[in-house]
Design a protein around this nucleic acid. Structure first.
Lengths: 340, 340
DNA sequence: TTGTATGCGTTATCAT
DNA sequence: ATGATAACGCATACAA
């Protein structure tokens, strides 16, 4: 199974009875080598099972054909689908993908910075809203990079994401159209720009509908199921219950839904609940959750395409690409009880 | 932001007014260099922001300090926590982790095989039950490797996983103790050894309790929410409804739970449902799911530790490490309706 | 069309 | 304690 040592270009050259230069050419510029020798080389390659040593090649060339994807949380339900978009696009261009997991830890980020500094990756895709390399970021020599989901604060790096304001607006407008006049936004937070923007969309919709501020409830949250449940409990305890809960993401909405179910309410008869993201489970909740669908694969595809533009031109063709997400109407929204 | 070219060991040497050999020594064997020169070197490193080029280093050394983790499905809810265990253990030993995603595609696997052949990774962690490299596997020169969750079929590679039989046994025994006599095992499949073993545990428990075979229902499934729901519907249509559903994993159990809820049943009053894995959402279902907890972080830790044993000794100290998982009792199991 | 020779950035061997 | 240099595997400028 584990052969002693991998074949080198020299092994191939010896067997094919040519020089290593010819072998290299036969591989990378076959048209520059006689077809007869090309044949010999190919046979020798087959015999030895030769694979070019990517490290030596990259060292020589000063670049590699790997793209590094750095993510703070691999467990994020959004991550894997975006990854698929990224991978497909990269593969189509002959590039491979490697994933680095930082767990929001700058120390871990540094590891990958070294990786980058060694030219082991030709490009960088960032899932975090911030360069994950701590202080050393300033002196770092980063390869062409693009952010996904969130703009990268400390870096002038282009990004592709979703138009959160427009998405949120679609949700409020639906709720408003159903007749809701007292709506709570659950999961307010300033740590993630995407979340702030969803809040913005909420406010914009409420403004447009002329809803008075005492009928707008905003609860903080960190986007976890827990936080949704917590916010709900607090609202009930303080007797500030709205007729509709517009949640910053699906996790939060699931928390609210679960809490409401536990209290014996029927959704959407008693209350309406909405999410954002369209996480895999959203459609399986009871009731199935009305939410905003992230065009995940498309985001990944666009991000990688943008990275290749950068790789080719050096200059970002545009610094922000916002995809407009769709509303997916399921069964967690209805008219407010008061209107029934 | 993007400095022209990264500093090399030569830049450092020039500034410190020493030879490159001394710089290298100052970094790797500081005790062999005069403290005065060590100081100069360190200053020069600080000035230049020098990082050793990992690629050149690995090329010279013939080994790297990266571990490659290959997984068929990054979205698997088990994956991210195991990864944390892997990462922590690797970091403690000065190694970094890179993740490769194959999507069960041999072509993609090949990419990573080249990576390995170039000595870009010192070791390999496999999440798949099979070497993901297609035909070329035979001629491949693999680094020390260990499997996670499942033994690797075509490779004599040691693995660490969970004792699925014992885990499943804990579940049946609970169900049996509650008084159930007609139990369905949902999600039978021969594609994953772990799943076959859970089935084995089920049968063993039923045998021990002397349950007759007509009271054992086995439904196929692929471990998705969908498949759980499907199996449930089929059982109702064929009028072969048991009093308890023992599901091969949590996803399946969630499907069953959702289906039962949709039909208006109350769990655990009308039916009992169990899962396996203790996925993040399991505790948030209504009712919270009784299931088996995968010791995920522990598995990752053990797997990586085993890999380092391999790296050091060459010989696997043991070929199979099975951790015994715990039953986590929540609220989806009760006595059968007939006994109430 | 093919071969020779150099250098990519390191570390290790051998002198000094 | 330090320096000069070879070698890791490869791609290419240059020579033939």
């Amino acid at each position: 199974m584990s052969n002693p040592t991998p074949a080198t270009i020299e092994d191939v050259a010896r067997i094919a009875e040519v020089s290593i230069a010819t072998v290299s050419r036969a591989i990378h510029t076959p048209e520059k080598v006689a077809s007869s020798t090309r044949l010999k080389v190919n046979q020798a390659i087959a015999i030895t099972g030769y694979t070019t040593n990517a490290m030596a090649r990259s060292l020589r060339l000063g670049r590699s054909n790997m793209i590094l994807v750095v993510a703070p949380d691999i467990g994020d339900p959004n991550f894997s689908n975006i990854l698929v978009g990224l991978e497909n696009e990269a593969r189509a261009r002959g590039y491979g993908i490697l994933i680095g997991h930082t767990q929001n830890d700058a120390q871990r980020g540094l590891e990958y910075l070294k990786f980058l500094n060694s030219n082991q990756a030709a490009g960088l895709i960032l899932f975090t809203g911030v360069l994950p390399f701590g202080h050393q970021t300033m002196t770092a020599r980063l390869p062409p990079s693009v952010g996904v989901f969130e703009p990268v604060h400390n870096g002038g790096i282009p990004y592709v994401g979703v138009d959160d304001i427009a998405g949120a607006r679609k949700v409020v407008d639906l709720l408003l159209a159903e007749g809701h006049e007292k709506i709570a936004f659950i999961g307010d937070s300033r740590t993630r720009l995407a979340y702030s923007r969803r809040r913005e969309g909420f406010e914009a919709g409420m403004n447009a509908a002329g809803i008075r501020s005492e009928n707008r409830i905003v609860m903080p949250g960190d986007g976890t199921v827990e936080s949704g449940r917590l916010a709900l409990e607090q609202l009930f305890m303080e007797d500030r219950v709205p007729t509709a809960f517009m949640c910053v993401n699906d996790q939060t909405a699931i928390g609210v839904l679960l809490g409401l179910n536990a209290r014996g309410y029927n959704i959407p008869r008693d209350y309406s609940v909405t999410g954002f993201d369209d996480v895999p489970l959203a459609g399986f909740m009871s009731p199935p959750l009305t939410t905003i669908r992230q065009p995940r694969t498309a985001i990944g595809k666009r991000a990688m395409a943008l990275l290749f533009d950068l790789l080719a031109d050096g200059e970002p063709p545009e610094s922000e690409i916002l995809l407009v997400p769709d509303l997916v109407v399921r069964n967690s929204v209805g008219p407010p009880k008061t209107l029934r």
